[in-house]
Amino acid sequence: MTEKKEDKFVQWILFATGISSILIIILIIVFIFSEGLPAMLSVGLFNFLFGMVWNPDNGIFGVFPMIIGTLLTTFIALLLAVPLSLCCSIFLAEIAPPNMRKLLKPTIQGLAGIPSVIYGFFGLVIIVPFMRIHFGGSGFSVLSASLILTVMILPTIISISEDALRSVPYEYNEASLALGATQWQTIKNVIFPAALSGIITAIILGMGRAIGETMAVIMVAGNVVQIPGSIFEPVRTLTSNIALEMGYATGIHYSALFATGIILLAVIIVLLLIANYINYKKRVTIGGGYL
């Protein structure tokens, strides 16, 4: 009897820990929304999202330049990181000899493990001066931030794409080679398409990482609230906006920073839903027989 009671008791505790991640998410959403909604309501959602001016001293809160800043840095980072990381993941999954794999796997782990503040510091002492010397201006710029983000999202995209490529059954590879295809033809026409949904998921998650990155970007982007005229001009992202001003914000300004957090939260959840939907759809098509 006591044994059974103990079992029930343990099961309840485990259940509680199991649902704790849901509870934490709900708690986070509730708190971010309850602190952020007042600003969104008083400024108006449209004015908040598309307002061109961010001037806390006069109570004007428009985050549009920051949205552009986030999208621009993320977009350029993806433009650079996607080709490099796809090549690298194909190299790891299909081409690299075992010794090379043994070197490259920890490399990617290492890149993923470097703290973002170290990346930011590296950008500050290497990339920013380089930009200043070669392209003029302060060196704090969209491009500086994008370059740092590129390196930071490489490991995410590489490791998830590699898993996707590796999960393609070896039979496809054999069948294609046996028909006289070269290795590259096999990769391009068979393996890559079969792994595509996983690769898209990898890119989406890399994108999420770029959007959410704060410290590295704050240290190299210049943080000027403006829609930059070129990639050599400074810019401020949504995440930096929060980190820069939380220290002294009060009242509606404080609330507006949480409202910025709402946007980030919403974007990340939408990205995750898309990634999950792609995976789900892939399972359905393979099972159902239709492409």
């Binding site: 059954p169 039979e171 069948a175 398409p193 079969a194 492409l291």
Partner: peptide, 13 residues
């Protein structure tokens, strides 16, 4: 050419 033990069509049409 080669035909394998387990049918291995590509996940294509």
């Amino acid at each position: 050419g080669m035909v394998f033990q387990k049918p291995n069509p590509f996940p294509k049409s």
